[in-house]
Design a protein around this nucleic acid. Structure first.
Lengths: 155, 155
DNA sequence: GCTTTCGGTTGTATAGTACAACGAGTACTT
DNA sequence: AAGTACTCGTTGTACTATACAACCGAAAGC
């Protein structure tokens, strides 16, 4: 493919949008199969909380384009399950600093293992070079989506 | 990247799972922004109905791993909006054959245009070669996910 | 100090989904 | 031909994820 005639850009873009959409459609159900104990959104938030130790609910909302009420409820759910702790920040009494509990760390690790295994199974016969490139493409795509519009600030 | 040391397979797989998941999380909200009149799921189903002329509800359910009740309601919604028609099949009185109406075709085309534009904006500075490869990778990935487990039949 | 802003919760509404029960139609078996 | 079993679809019910709006308490800016 690299040498000869390439499909026109728009055809590639169309395939990309279609296939990414197809993936998105299946993601929730797939997550439920792979780790039924930790639904997709909870998984994601918990993973973020673990990575960014001591993050706040607002950070999560901003990062995932979620309403703060959604985050509030999700975190409340995770807390009720005993997977995160909400500690009042010492300096600012408004914020709750989020930490994973031991149980949270454990269940997250298990979910990540299952998740990774599921992906590895689907990718097992890919050459390493293709994996690396695919990963790079996805990173690049998502990075572009994260800084969506270089909106010229008024004034 | 192609010449030198590649990241280990598992690192790439981890990135892939993380980034695909990130995309999935944002997909619904993004769809709502891009074509508010046709939510993600309706869009997907309507597109499928248009492509596979005369498909049945069961086909949709199988293709998208959805429960038939879900499909039933989604299709009912599309019908109420006037975007699809349910015609009883002549040979089998159980099945409803689905066809897009003219309005459906129109709204779908508009949504696809917006959608494509949004993707193209995010991909505008990609070289054509990368686009083609990215598209190919996604196709390959999703094809693997569609025939998920070569489950050995118990017999 | 008063007002504004910020972080978060709660009330309410909606979409999307699954599972279970069912109804009507078709196919298989004897 | 009758009875059983399977298939397609709908409906009842419940739950998750989500948004928007209204609100509360704490902090910051004037």
């Amino acid at each position: 493919m690299t040498g000869g005639a390439q499909p026109p850009r728009e055809a590639s873009v169309d395939v990309i949008q279609r296939e990414l959409t197809a993936f998105a459609r299946r993601a929730r159900a797939a997550a439920a199969r792979v780790h039924p104990e930790l639904p997709l959104v909870s998984y994601t938030l918990l993973a973020h909380i673990e990575e960014q130790r001591g993050c706040r609910a607002t950070d999560l909302a901003a990062h995932y384009f979620l309403d703060k009420s959604t985050v509030s409820r999700q975190v409340a759910g995770l807390e009720k399950l005993g997977f995160v702790e909400r500690r009042p920040a010492p300096d600012d009494h408004r914020v709750h600093v989020l930490h994973p509990t031991e149980a949270g760390t454990k269940v997250l690790a298990a979910a990540q293992t299952n998740r990774l295994a599921a992906f590895e199974e689907r990718l097992e016969d890919w050459p390493a070079e293709d994996l690396a490139r695919f990963a790079a493409y996805l990173l690049r795509y998502n990075a572009a989506a994260t800084n969506p519009a270089p909106v010229p600030p008024p004034s």
